[in-house]
Amino acid sequence: MSVSAAHNGNVEKRSFNRTSEIGRFAAMVEKELLELLRSFKLLWVPLVFILLGIMQPVSSYFMPIILEQAGNLPEGVIANMPKPQGAEVLAQTLQQFGTLGVLVLALVCMGVVSGERNSGAASLILVKPISLYSYIGSKWTAMLVLTWGSLAAGYLAAWYYTGLLIGSVPFKDIVSSLLIYGLWLTLLVTLTVFFSTMLKSPAGAAFSSIGCIAVFSLLAGIFPKQLGWSPGALSGFAYQAVSASIMKGDYFGWAIVSALAIIAGALAAAVWLLRRSSSVE
């Protein structure tokens, strides 16, 4: 058959320069970031964090005036109100990130895998010769860029306004608390990616991951002695890192190790879940 012989010749010649798995991974991360950019998430999520970050020092600064205007406090209370420390304000800022910030991040990440699987777009991607680790990993990486970027922007804004209005805080305290708190949010985002792989419903994924994070925090809060090594203690360590010199007990290291272990476990489980339904690889 002359047609097919000619065709075979073409096929042998067609070889193009192949990039490695790293190259494909980079292409996928690029696509995820472009998606975040085109959907404006890369713009408004940092803005929300910056707003939250500025609000805390500003509201602390104006609190006496606000209370005075409200006007139903006895004389002398306001004059005697202690001025908050800069470090305290920053710890409160982190608490803001822990509620509204967590909610925003979970909502942004909740459909990251399930959305593509539900629409069928994932099946066109997964038939390409890519590894499932790259697929999950690229989404995770892009979400981390968003998370760390937003957190850093919001926290630095808070630090700047605190310095202006209340009192300066050493930069190294900011960095250490930022790193610890970033790990806490990384845990949240990783769990959201995992639940987004496991559950069809994006809302379910957001609910589950926020639930997990809340349970972690709650357990570490109720049993500080027994569960001080658990990842739930991380947010507490972050507050300490900025407000007081951190009490680096034996637990601190363990909390980081356990958080990293859960993150790695959740990513591996997400890949496993995805592979269970297909035979790719």
């Binding site: 320069n17 192949r18 990039t19 190259g23 494909r24 292409a27 390409k128 010769p129």
Partner: peptide
């Protein structure tokens, strides 16, 4: 282009 890069082609 994205599909091509996923198959290991350079950009």
């Amino acid at each position: 282009i994205y599909a091509g890069r996923l198959c290991g082609m350079t950009a």
